[in-house]
Design a protein around this nucleic acid. Structure first.
Lengths: 187, 187
DNA sequence: ACCTGAACACCGTTCAAGT
DNA sequence: ACCTGAACACCGTTCAAGT
């Protein structure tokens, strides 16, 4: 609040009649985030005419890009249901992807939440540090754990010392998500 | 810090020589969270001997239960790589699930991150309010959006006015995750 | 060794007072 | 109508001083 007031060139208290509270300001910020996520009018036409797997991948990458552009506020997307006009437009794009994939109408809302939950969870993990290099537990670190108590680590061995390439990993994740949507549609 | 000090019956500053900083304290908290997540010794035996789809579902539900028991600290799991002994033990259980499912060794770490990212993202969304009732955009609210601009919402119609049953939705999500793991193993 | 008091540099928010 | 000043009730952390 105080930082915002500073940037506006006003005392913090002058903001309150305009924005109500910090929470209300964050609600407004989520709007802006989602509006930014939405392609502009010509981009939207092009988006709508591409095959659904491409659209699903684009939404996945868009989510991640949004998080990287706004790491400090991205997490508020988890605490506010998407109810503004732009939010509904974003959700509509995903609903349409699922409908075009052949997902049954009744399953569309659930799969929308599944897909966005994964993409948002991945983006949040990345910007907040869950995937940081330290996660790769080196063999020497594993040595400190009672021998035989982590059999899968022992079996995978040197594979675990490789730092993952998060970019290409996410691409493969989105491929799996596309396959899952297709499978759900077929069943 | 001040609240912790109060509970301990000491001034806030007395904590610092013991815990270092608030961040270090949160690191310790994550340990406790993961230790709590892990079944106790007899439970672990039983866990290890059950079929892998059951184990995957149990991990999914365990993540959600953990979040509900500790809503205020759950989010720190996103900002710290899992490096403690108990964290490695939890990851090992998931690696073993994937290995038993027949996932190729090289794909196991990626799928571990995919599965946990979804489960953690879902749990976080739930406790932070993203799935709250308001998310269901009623038709009257949609009326305020330019007609025809949300075709998928129009097509799905009254389906969207139904409040979702999050419990059974999560069960179906985990079924889809099991199917995805099986599909990845088969390919 | 361990703890305390005072202080520093912060927060979001209320409310009476100013123009 | 719109903004300000002072104040309230908070934060995490440092550092010299006490026992």
């Amino acid at each position: 609040m105080r930082a915002v007031a500073d940037r506006v060139g006003v005392t913090p208290m002058a903001l309150y009649p305009h924005i109500g509270s910090k929470d209300a300001l964050l609600d407004g910020l989520v709007d802006r985030l989602l509006a930014e996520f939405l392609p502009d009018a010509p981009g939207l036409e092009e988006f709508r005419s591409s095959p659904w797997p491409d659209r699903l991948r684009a939404i996945g990458h868009g989510t991640r890009d949004l998080a990287q552009r706004h790491p400090a506020v991205f997490r508020v997307l988890f605490s506010r249901p998407a109810v503004t006009a732009d939010a509904v437009r974003v959700v509509d794009l995903i609903y349409q992807v699922l409908l075009d994939a052949g997902v049954a109408d009744a399953e569309v809302p659930r799969l929308e939440r599944l897909v966005t939950t994964f993409c948002m969870g991945f983006a949040l993990s990345e910007i907040h540090g869950r995937f940081d290099a330290r996660q790769v537990v080196t063999r020497s670190e594993r040595g400190r754990i009672a021998p035989g108590s982590v059999p899968a680590h022992d079996r995978l061995g040197p594979l675990l010392d490789l730092a993952p390439d998060i970019d290409s990993e996410y691409d493969r994740d989105l491929d799996d998500l596309v396959a899952m949507v297709a499978a759900t549609a077929a069943s």
